[in-house]
Each structure stands twice: as structure tokens, then as C-alpha cells.
């Protein structure tokens, strides 16, 4: 069970990392091209700002998934450090459960919100807005897979042995 979620979470993470590179690079390129076009070619691009913003939103949530997988989202460990090993283990189980609750809301309410705005389009590109918002439930699914893995690991005390 743990092995399955570990493999799944690592596999998905590799693909999300690749997406991060593609989206970050594309976003940078778009802003550079926009500057070049405005100052050098004296012509403004109509689509560039909106597309770059879309990429930023996607980047944020995809990056958050990779950061979560790596365990680099900062916390405050002043109290935590003073817990007993057993206390720390239970605190981690609690944190993972609370996190899963948040990710679950991202999935379920993310889908309802994407449906809620299914007819709305973006002003400059006329792209459906559900594509933009769709990243939230998508990231929610990825985060949940990592979260279940961490929860199972915490329940088996794997974090304590590291």
C-alpha cells in the first residue's frame, strides 16, 4: 500500500517537474518577447499579458505540488521540536489529515467552481476561464496523492526513522 503510493507520488512528481520547466520557461519567454516587441518593434502584443498570467497561476499550483513533495513549504517548529517522538508522530498524522481536508476541498469545490464559470471567457484571449481555474482541482489531486503517501508513512513511523 505504502509502496504503491510512493511509486505513484514520485512518478507524478517527475511529470509535474517537467511541466514546471515548460511553463516557467514559456512565461519568461512571453514577457521577454512582450518587452522586445514593445520597445524594439514598436508593436504591442494583445495576448501576452493574459497568457503569462495564466501560466503564473498554473506555475503556482504545480510548483506548490513539487514543493510539497520535497517537503520545503516552511512551518514554525518552535513548539513541535519540544514534543516527544510519539507526540511528533501524532502531530504529523494530524497535519496530514488537515492538509488532506484542504486538498479535498480544492478537488471537489475546484470542480464545482470550474463548472460554475464554464460559460465565462477571458477578456483578451477569449479562452474559457475553466481552463485557468481547472488547475486547482488538478493540483488538489496531485497534492492528495502526496498527502496520502505522507500520512501512510507517518502512521508507520517512517519519518521518525529517517
Amino acid at each position: 500500500m505504502i509502496r504503491f503510493f510512493q511509486t505513484l507520488s514520485d512518478g507524478i512528481n517527475r511529470r509535474v517537474e517537467a511541466l514546471l520547466f515548460v511553463m516557467g520557461g514559456t512565461m519568461t519567454l512571453i514577457v521577454v518577447v512582450q518587452v522586445f516587441s514593445r520597445y524594439v518593434l514598436n508593436h504591442s502584443l494583445f495576448w501576452s499579458e493574459e497568457l503569462a498570467r495564466f501560466l503564473l497561476v498554473w506555475l503556482t499550483f504545480m510548483g506548490a505540488c513539487v514543493g510539497y513533495h520535497k517537503g520545503v513549504h516552511p512551518g514554525v517548529d518552535v513548539c513541535f521540536k519540544r514534543f516527544s517522538p510519539r507526540g511528533q508522530q501524532w502531530a504529523m498524522v494530524g497535519i496530514h489529515l488537515a492538509s488532506l481536508l484542504l486538498f479535498g476541498v480544492m478537488v471537489i469545490k475546484g470542480i464545482s467552481f470550474a463548472w460554475f464559470i464554464r460559460l465565462q471567457i477571458s477578456p483578451a484571449l477569449s479562452l474559457p476561464k475553466w481552463i485557468l481555474m481547472g488547475i486547482v482541482p488538478l493540483a488538489g489531486v496531485v497534492l492528495m496523492i502526496h498527502g496520502v503517501r505522507f500520512l501512510l508513512e507517518a502512521l508507520h513511523g517512517q519519518d521518525l526513522m529517517d
Partner: peptide
């Protein structure tokens, strides 16, 4: 949640 060392964004 902060005291439990929850990642800030998630807390």
C-alpha cells in the same frame, strides 16, 4: 496549526 508545525500556506 502553526504550533503543530503545519506548512504555513496549508495552515
Amino acid at each position: 496549526l502553526f504550533a503543530m508545525n503545519t506548512p504555513i500556506a496549508i495552515a
